[in-house]
Design a protein around this nucleic acid. Structure first.
Lengths: 312, 312
DNA sequence: GGCCGGCCCTGCGGAGTGCGCATACCGGCC
DNA sequence: GGCCGGTATGCGCACTCCGCAGGGCCGGCC
């Protein structure tokens, strides 16, 4: 009686594997296995044959899959029709702006959680720097902006509503074969001899400030054009970099991170118009808040493969 | 994304009232209210107008209702088709036998719970005495029998499987205006002067035995043909009766019950063929077990309106 | 033929949620 | 204006669902 379970079953049939379906649906294999088993128990009929190299639908499974597809498409139509009949607000895509690190880290996860509870909605994500994003909220271009108070900080503007999500610890990105990789939190002076790379003035200022407090100076010998370029230089061993902790779970496979003792932090904020025109804006803010708090514990971890990532 | 919620909404629209829908669906008004509210939140669109004398669907609600009906019927078809494609076992109705008291008490509730998890299945309920029901299980007439060990007790028969559900305390049925109505557990000697009514030899034996243990004798001056007749005599004040506790929640409005100090008990058992041919037999046994254990606490109560009955 | 690796199942513990209950609120009706 | 039917909501509980970790099974490869 749960349509998400039916959708899971259809995906399993399409891919011929519980694990593959789990990966596509961003669940664990365990959850998919139990969902299908529960469906079979409800129906009282085996739906798939378990094989050593995957699964294959039984005849009954094939029949059910056919009807399930029809049901799901009808359900989608119902949701769509109700929203169109309500008012036009849903037909416009939800436009979300975020800084590059947040756009790679928590925002997609929050949108996914939002879609899980509202069903499929259209949306677009615009990367940008905090100041630009703030401006675009005032002009109405953006429904929601997710920004940081990294230098030069956020302006105070009564025309928009600002909500504090939490503090994000900065971490150090290293190539996986770096001597410090896999260690616990390190001190800034341990990294005194390293070459650093930065991609914008705000980040550079933050790094210099933090190094100065630790009594050392950070040599920024390289400058990258953007975040991906910065990470490319880290991955290839040319330098190390200070990056936001929210990025930890969305890094390249050839990069790892270590925490810092007494790390610098950035405040994460959402910015919205006072009376948000889009009905999904408020729910998205909630999802961002929970997504952020659920990410926090990952900062305690030293390396990749953080908990909660499941089979993703 | 939960089809049961959609079904709730459709029912609400049909009846024009949350409370009425709750009663029909055997839920509380609270649950229905929250289900509809959650649906509106998911869709981002108000579906009903709350009115002082019920609710009425909004235009969007009307549209959604239309599509929801289509989806639900398609989902029903999916379930039905899968079961037919499996094997013929589901097409045969599940035949359940039970003694009159159990047929009125826990069996319908267990079937309802079963249907809640398996969807609509066909079934039939045959009342009978324990010995008859036992025989019909051996002949294959019944898929499941729910019986008691009241005198003369259950035969030991290796051809069938017997499962113990629990002990059921007997209680005393009284007309609502009886002096003892609403009191706490009473002693048998308090009722020594009463006139009792019984409807079969087993019950009469149990009553006489229990009265004797308490040092009094019970006058059975009336005999009824069956359970409804027995209760009719109680309701009209002609006599009082010893009845199974499981009946407490299914009594006539003009009858109440009081517990007994150190009451006589009956064991409740299920009897099934060893290899039950019907796929719903095993789940039904589980439902009966949970239904019975959830009923038990009600025995502690003195009068009607037991907890857990909700708006039913 | 024996080892290995991928795939699926299941017991355990924790987090989230849906529900029942009791109560507050709200709008007609007499 | 008081009463009453009907709906919304805070609180606490129980249940479910999921992620994790360990185990079993089968096919393929050496």
């Amino acid at each position: 009686m749960e349509l998400t379970v039916w959708r899971t079953f259809v995906t399993v049939c399409r891919l011929g594997s519980l694990s593959a379906a789990a990966a596509e649906l961003h669940h664990t294999q365990s959850a998919v296995s139990r969902q299908v088993a529960g469906l079979e128990r409800q129906l009282g009929v085996p739906l798939i044959e378990r094989h050593a190299r995957g699964v294959r639908p039984t005849p009954a499974g094939e029949v059910f899959r056919h009807h399930a597809l029809a049901t799901l498409s009808e359900a989608d139509r119902a949701v769509r029709a109700a929203r169109e009949a309500g008012d036009g607000a849903f037909n416009r895509p939800l436009t979300v702006g975020a800084t590059p690190s947040l756009a790679a880290g928590i925002v997609p996860e929050a949108i996914r959680a939002l879609q899980k509870e509202t069903g499929s909605i259209r949306w677009s994500l615009l990367p940008g720097l905090s100041a630009q994003l703030h401006h675009r909220v005032t002009t109405g271009d953006l429904d929601v902006a997710v920004v940081t108070d990294a230098p030069p900080g956020l302006p105070h503007d009564p025309r928009v509503e600002r909500r504090f999500l939490g503090l994000d610890d900065m971490v150090v990105a290293l190539p996986v074969d770096h001597p410090q990789a896999g260690r616990g939190p390190v001190r800034m002076r341990t990294l005194a001899d390293e070459t650093w790379v930065e991609d914008n003035d705000g980040s550079a200022a933050l790094l210099h400030q933090h190094a100065a407090r630790a009594g050392v100076s950070a040599r920024i010998d390289l400058t990258a054009a953007d975040l991906p370029g910065k990470l490319a230089l880290v991955a290839t061993g040319h330098a190390i970099a200070l990056i936001p902790g929210v990025l930890t779970r969305a890094l390249r496979i050839d990069i790892t991170t270590v925490g810092l003792v007494d790390p610098p932090t950035r405040g994460i904020y959402t910015i919205t118009p006072h009376r948000s025109p889009h009905p999904c804006a408020a729910p998205l803010l909630d999802q961002l808040a929970t997504a952020f708090t659920s990410i926090r514990p990952a900062h305690e971890l030293v390396s990749r493969g953080s908990p909660g990532s499941g089979y993703r």
